[in-house]
């Protein structure tokens, strides 16, 4: 941790103070958690009836199928959005003003548009028979626009000398881009790119507006189709579905860290990058 930069190694009194803070914080958080647990328990949120549906094979199958559909949409959208991102980034870095303008307009437009609205509109207009493709297209357009911005700022961050040296060697613009600038940009922006892929993964959950049967849709259906004496099991569903999403996203982040660490072994220099 870089934390040591901001404060001195604590002396005995500071240590005691930190410990006091720590104890207070732990007590406070534990108190809140206990209150939450206690209120939920007193409203029978942990009763057998609330959790009963998860015991059925058919329901487990529904969750697994939802998970697979989530991963399918994510895989397609991730691949397409990276391709689109590279294309749009190339457009924004073009030497031709009209190309730059068009690429910039596309990026600005899709970056501003709520996915929920875009997916719904795509489904109602172009992809009436395929919720999957409406979802994938919506995800691709938005995330492609964001990835384009990430790649572009990565290219801009490569020291100017790199490009100039390549031009001096007689390389064409496309060669400079593909051989020199983009590889370096992608390496330095990898955390941001993966960070956006995590967003893509989470946003597959918006498929529920067009009844794409992904994980969150499955969860919502389980909640709304199970009436127990104590109401509908929204909290159990959140407690089951939430960790699955968090787990997938953390895995993806871990993958990014691993790739980054591997890349660093070969690379000579690293710059800290905003995630």
């Amino acid at each position: 941790m870089s934390s040591s930069v901001l404060y001195d190694a604590p002396g005995p009194r500071a240590k005691a103070r930190y410990r006091a803070f720590g104890v207070l914080a732990v007590l406070g958080i534990a108190g809140l958690l206990w209150y939450a647990y206690d209120s939920l328990a007193s409203r029978n949120q942990f009763s057998a009836a609330m959790w009963d549906p998860f015991q059925y094979t058919a329901v487990q199958q529904l969750i697994v199928n939802g998970l697979l559909d989530t991963l399918k949409a994510f895989g397609l959208a991730a691949a397409f959005s990276l391709v689109l991102g590279a294309l749009l980034a190339a457009g924004r870095l073009s030497d031709h003003r009209p190309v730059r303008a068009v690429a910039a307009a596309i990026v600005q437009f899709f970056r501003a548009m709520p996915l929920l609205i875009m997916i719904f509109a795509l489904y109602q207009s172009f992809f009436t028979t395929s919720p999957l493709w409406a979802l994938v297209t919506g995800l691709t357009l938005y995330n492609g626009a964001v990835q384009a911005e990430i790649i572009r700022s990565g290219v801009n961050a490569v020291p100017r000398g790199q490009g100039e040296a390549a031009y001096a060697l007689g390389m064409r613009k496309s060669q400079v881009m593909t051989a020199i600038l983009v590889p370096q940009a992608v390496r330095s922006m990898l955390p941001a790119i993966i960070g956006q892929l995590v967003v893509t993964l989470k946003d597959t959950s918006l498929g529920f507006v067009i009844t794409y049967t992904e994980l969150l849709y499955a969860g919502k259906l389980i909640a709304s189709n199970t009436a127990t004496p104590d109401g509908y099991p929204y909290i159990p569903v959140v407690l089951v579905i939430g960790p699955i999403y968090i787990g997938m996203c953390l895995l993806l982040t871990a993958l990014a860290k691993w790739i980054e660490a591997r890349g660093r072994r070969g690379a000579n220099r690293r710059t800290p990058v905003a995630a």
């Binding site: 009963d52 549906p53 998860f54 094979t57 969750i63 697994v64 998970l67 787990g247 997938m248 953390l250």
Partner: peptide, 27 residues
């Protein structure tokens, strides 16, 4: 810390996958 979080998350995922043993029929 993150590694430990990931390990925990993975075990949850694994549980979900393993939980193929379940009831059939209907409440």
């Amino acid at each position: 810390r993150t590694r430990r979080t990931i390990a925990a998350a993975m075990s949850v995922l694994a549980l979900t996958a393993v939980a193929a043993c379940g009831k059939s029929g209907s409440p």
